[in-house]
Simulated assay, not measured.
Amino acid sequence: MIFVALLHAVNLGARRTVPMADLRALLTGLGLEDVRTYIQSGNAVFSAAPETDLRGRLEAALEAHFGFPVPVTLRTAHEWQEAARGCPAHLRDEPVVLAFPRDPPDPARVAALHGRDVTPERWEVVGQTLYQTVPDGVRTLRLSSGVLERTLGVKVTVRNERTVQAIAAMMDT
């Protein structure tokens, strides 16, 4: 089975550095196959047998190797392709980022998110993915990953649409 692993908050500064060559070596050493990475923001594609706690095993290995906790969001190839194709048409008139919750948020917390005024941004949850417009760029987002995490009560990692599409294309090769 093919998986996508998204590492949260790595390579944003000097303190949480995860070189992609080291990540590939670590994942291969864990018995994962066909390990590939995309850019330096902590994106890996690999093949593995489905297992009960693959995410926990990855997080433990990452912390042991790099010396700091690294939350991981996992998606299957099918889930990833759905996310890559799933952006609602009414959000397509502006640049979009995709937020990937590590765990499914409570529906009541998603409802609470609807109560926040984040104008001019617009967003919608489809399946396991939150699609968000970024009319003024990611540096000024009112609905930042921190706000998402606090409101939804789960870890969230965000990728731009170009990255999502590039990872989807990696699975086709």
Rank of each mutant, 00 (worst) to 15 (best):
M1I: 11
P105N: 09
V126F: 05
S41C: 08
R85W: 12
Q40D: 12
G67N: 11
P105L: 05
H8R: 15
C87F: 08
M20F: 12
P107E: 10
T129L: 03
V110F: 09
R109P: 06
L91C: 06
G86E: 07
M171I: 10
L32T: 02
R57G: 11
F3E: 02
P104C: 09
E82C: 12
P19Q: 11
L58K: 02
R159Y: 10
S41T: 13
F3S: 05
R24Q: 13
R109K: 14
T133L: 01
Q81R: 14
R55C: 13
A83N: 03
A169E: 13
P19Y: 10
S144K: 03
Q81H: 14
V158Y: 01
T140F: 14
R24Y: 10
R150I: 09
F68N: 10
P71V: 04
P105K: 06
D106Y: 10
S47T: 15
I167P: 01
L27W: 06
D172E: 15
G86C: 07
V125L: 15
A168K: 06
T140D: 14
L58R: 04
Q132G: 01
E51K: 09
G42I: 01
A60W: 05
V154I: 12
T17E: 10
L91V: 04
G29A: 09
P135E: 02
V125P: 02
A44H: 05
Q81F: 14
D106W: 12
D34K: 13
L98R: 08
D93L: 06
E33I: 02
S47W: 14
A48V: 03
F100V: 09
R150A: 15
G127D: 11
V96L: 04
F46K: 00
L113K: 07
S144N: 07
T133D: 03
R16K: 14
L6Y: 04
E149I: 04
F100Y: 13
V18K: 01
T17P: 00
F46G: 00
A89V: 12
A25R: 13
T129E: 03
E79N: 05
E82I: 11
E59K: 06
R75F: 10
Y131I: 05
A61F: 08
R36G: 08
A61Q: 06
H8C: 12
L58T: 03
D34R: 15
I2V: 15
E149L: 09
R57E: 08
V125S: 12
V35K: 06
V18Y: 03
E94T: 05
R36K: 14
A99K: 02
A21Y: 11
V156S: 01
T163R: 01
V126Y: 04
V35G: 06
L130H: 01
